[in-house]
Design a protein around this nucleic acid. Structure first.
Lengths: 189, 189
DNA sequence: GTGTCATCTTGTCAATGCAAAGATATGCTG
DNA sequence: CAGCATATCTTTGCATTGACAAGATGACAC
C-alpha cells in the first residue's frame, strides 16, 4: 500500500487516514482503534501519535478532509440546486466514513483551525446553489431560509439512508430517490 | 436517586439508563463507559452486565426506549403534519441522547426484537401525519414520497441542529426554526 | 563527517470491556 | 419457619486500548 517511499514508511499519515476510512465504512467510528490502524499500516502502535497527537486529532484531520471533498463535489455538480442536492447525498453515501465523522463533533476538535477553512468553503458551496433559483418563487425574499430547508432535506435523506432506517421500498438507487425527495421542496416549473 | 427500594439497589436498570442519558447529553455516545455508569449508580463495575449483557445491550435498550418515546411524542402532537414535524424536532432536541443512539445502528444490535415493535410504532406515527394532508395538492398520488420528504426535512434539520453545524443566525428557538423550514415543504394554502 | 530534525520504536501505565466464579438478598415451597 | 432456587450484585482476572516518556533510526544540510 502506498509503498515505502522516502521515509520509514513513506506516507504514514495518508495511509492511516485511508485505513481509518476503511474501518469506519465497515464497522462505524466507534470501532476505530489507533493501534489497529497502526497494525494495518505495518508500524508500531505509537506511530500515529506523532502525526495526529491523539485519536481526536486523527478524526479532526478526517473531518477536515471530508469538508474539502464535499466543497469540491458540490462545486463540480454545477449551478442547478437540484443537482447540488443530489451531489450532497451522493457524497454522503460515497464517502460515508468522512460524512459520519464530519457531523459528529464530539469525536473531534471542532475548534481546530484546519477545519474552519474547509467548513467555510463547503458552506459557501451549499448557499451558492440557492442563489441560482428562479426569481418568481414564493419564498424569494428569504434565501437563507431556502438554503436551510434545502440543506435540511438532503442532509436528512442522506443520514436516514446511511443509518439504514429507510424502508426497503425506497429502492436501492439513492441518487434517484434523493432527486425525487428534493424535487418536492423546489418543484420544477 | 431512585432510592434503594426492594433490592440491593432498587432499580439499577433504570438508574443505569438514566445515567447513560446524562453522560451522552454531556459528552456524546463515544464517551460512554459502563464502569463510569456503575460508579454513578454506586454499584460494582460488573453489575451492568447482568442487566444488559454488554455495552451494545445497554444502547439497544436505550434505542428501544427512544423509539417508544418518539412514537408517543408524535401521537401526542395531533393530526396536523406540520405539528408532527415540529414535534419530531422537539423530541430530537429534548431527548438528544436517545435520538443520537437511535440512528446510529453501529452502536447497538439493530436486529433485537425489543426494537422492532417500538420502531414500528414510531414509523406508523410518522406516516400517519401524511394521510391528513389536504387532497388537492400536486403530489397527492404518492403519499409514500410525501412521507419520505417530510421525514427527511425534519430529520435533517434536527441532526444539523444537534451537531452544531447551523450558523448562529438561525437563532436559538428550534421549534420556530423547524416550523419555518417544514412549512416550505408543505405550504399552508 | 557531523549535527539536527522529523520519523518511528520500545516500554510502561491507567482505564476499559468482558468473562468466570463467588456472595447475598428475595421469594417460594413445604 | 426451614430449606432451596433464583435474581441481583461483587470480586477477581485478563486482553485491549489510549496516552505518555525515552530512545533509536534514517534523511538532509553544511
Amino acid at each position: 500500500m502506498t509503498g515505502p517511499r522516502g521515509y520509514h514508511h513513506g506516507d504514514l499519515r495518508r495511509a492511516l487516514l485511508a485505513a481509518a476510512v476503511r474501518v469506519i465504512e465497515e464497522s462505524g467510528p466507534a470501532a476505530l482503534s489507533l493501534r489497529d490502524l497502526a497494525r494495518r499500516a505495518g508500524v508500531s502502535h505509537a506511530a500515529p501519535a506523532h502525526h495526529f497527537g491523539d485519536k481526536s486529532g486523527l478524526l479532526t484531520a478526517l473531518a477536515a478532509e471530508g469538508f474539502e471533498l464535499l466543497a469540491e463535489a458540490l462545486h463540480d455538480a454545477g449551478g442547478d440546486l437540484l443537482d447540488r442536492g443530489v451531489a450532497y447525498v451522493d457524497f454522503a453515501i460515497g464517502h460515508r466514513a468522512h460524512f459520519e465523522v464530519m457531523f459528529r463533533p464530539d469525536l473531534y476538535r471542532a475548534d481546530a483551525e484546519e477545519l474552519a477553512a474547509a467548513r467555510e468553503r463547503a458552506g459557501d458551496a451549499l448557499r451558492a446553489g440557492v442563489a441560482a433559483l428562479p426569481e418568481g418563487r414564493p419564498t424569494a425574499e428569504d434565501p437563507q431560509g431556502d438554503a436551510l430547508a434545502a440543506w435540511s432535506i438532503v442532509h436528512g435523506f442522506a443520514t436516514l439512508w446511511l443509518s439504514g432506517a429507510l424502508p426497503a421500498r425506497v429502492g436501492d438507487d439513492p441518487r434517484a430517490a434523493a432527486r425525487a425527495v428534493a424535487q418536492r421542496l423546489f418543484p420544477k416549473p
